[in-house]
Design a protein around this nucleic acid. Sequence first.
DNA 1: ATTAAACCTATCAAGTAACTAGACTATCAG
DNA 2: CTGATAGTCTAGTTACTTGATAGGTTTAAT
Lengths: 153, 153
Amino acid sequence: MITMKTKYALKAMYRLAISPPGEPVLIADIAEREDIPKKFLELILSELKQHGFLKSRKGRGGGYQLARDPKSISLASLIRVIEGPIAPVPCLSRTAYERCEGCRDEETCAVRLGLHAAYQDWVKALEGTSLQDVLGRVDEAAGKLTLGTRYSI
Amino acid sequence: MITMKTKYALKAMYRLAISPPGEPVLIADIAEREDIPKKFLELILSELKQHGFLKSRKGRGGGYQLARDPKSISLASLIRVIEGPIAPVPCLSRTAYERCEGCRDEETCAVRLGLHAAYQDWVKALEGTSLQDVLGRVDEAAGKLTLGTRYSI
DNA sequence: ATTAAACCTATCAAGTAACTAGACTATCAG
DNA sequence: CTGATAGTCTAGTTACTTGATAGGTTTAAT
């Protein structure tokens, strides 16, 4: 399970991605629309900024904006920044490799070998999904919903 | 990242799977071979037993044994029992579905839609990997290692 | 009866998750 | 220049989870 913090980060990124470009969005605005505690969101957006996903302006007329094209932002990169490595064991991570402490033989470790292939599927899918893709899926779902509603009338 | 407890459980299951059938294996034995705190392992094996993966005998000559064919034990089922649901958000879990608290519209939730497909890949792979498969991979890796060593001599 | 083993209940320390408080700083309107 | 606005920074706090450990109880073979 991912943490609340990561969910909030994804929701905030989504909000910023669908808001008109060039117009900064207020923390308070995102917090209200997505039901995120404002102070906590401050912290999250600040981290996302530090990692180059967002830019911001202080003072009146200020707020947050995407710093990059939604097509170039993968879910994997967002999760890594807020949540940490995606791999189920550190010895499988490509971005944050670490030997498991006390590991005797990595090459023949049952845990590592057991999870390897499944993890590859998971991480490749996350790397292949962009923020833009998420927008598309939400649109599609909303469209289908509307259609469904129409049919039911 | 999975917890130590889950790693220990997988290692223990692997140990039991490669030990000669019919002969119970001691907790102490597994603990020593896999570097697992014995008391902690007791707890884990007990849980695995309660969930039908293992059977045990008390007293002299006792110990633990697999209760099921390694072919029929998936990594997904083991992880679920020790670690909990595999899904990144409860609303995606098929075995432990729950609405995220405070969720406004599940159908068009960016987090849910964003993670859906990737999660499917992950869980299908875990469900498709059996303990038997893990044995196979370890054997193969050990074989390849030996081969590699031979070549290098 | 003795010993070897699994079983059971309770407890604990350290770490993490999810916030919260409050002071500080930059920006702009008038 | 002043005041309101809005992001920034540091430092808590509370509850929960993880990774164990202690110490006794029960069961079964010799």
